[in-house]
Amino acid sequence: MSNRGGVVKTLFKRDFVYTFYSWGFYVVLFAAFMISSFILKNFLDGIREEDILVSAYPLNYPLFISVIVISIYLVMLSGVSISREREHGTLEVLFYGPVTAGNFLISKYFKDLCLGIIALAFCAVYFYLVSLTTNLGFTAGLVRALVMGVFMISCVVCFGLFISSLTGRTRSSVLVLLAILGGFLALQFVHAALIGMEREALSTPMLYLRETVSHLFRGINWVSPFAFLNRGLDAVVLDSPLLFGLNIFYAVVYSVIFLILSIISMSLKGVKA
């Protein structure tokens, strides 16, 4: 293994072991499964009452919710990973030696991605058990959704790392992340509200606002990692191999771009909080 590979492996191992053996990871998994179970229960009650199965992929929506919960945890985890080390000064000590911004970020990326994959593996086991007990079927669509989940988690982690590379303190990272994600959500809400209004009912300024919000929304669809998650699940539901492949390609491009931006911003911001 090259020197750089060795450094990445060492950093990855320390960080991964520390996070994997912390309670946070398991609390999040538990929360994800609780929410999924609640949704599944409502779904099964619906089937029992109406005697009709309304979806070809009944487990996909609960899985989607689980992935969202895991993604929120991972975006927060990656979002504080650099700023926390900056704040505690440990980043500075690492950089006295043969650690560079590149191998530090790659180790963080793989650590969070691996945690995501492990979380998805737990999801696979959970949904397999659910399919056995409910006869809802562990479909190929569910497997595709799990595979897509890995790439979506990659986007989420890279976005979090980018925010963390810009900030000097843990609290700033959390606040910036919340502000950005809240902003995305608010825009989505405003967009949905404006689109829902009849064009004729809108005054000229409101029409102008609707157009502006639409443009912004389209732009944000390529920036927000959660929009990738949404599109990915759509591709699975539509059962389109082309869309599925395209979404994976977009996710890889997104991850690479955000990783490069993170390395640049980390190099420019330096090691001090």
């Binding site: 505690h88 000064g89 000590v93 006295y96 030696g97 043969p98 560079t100 190099s267």
Partner: peptide
Amino acid sequence: NPRNVDVKRKIGVVSENQYFYRE
């Protein structure tokens, strides 16, 4: 050259403030 890690391998540093992985 900050990216030349070979030189950094030959340097040892003790800083004014001590930063550790305390766990």
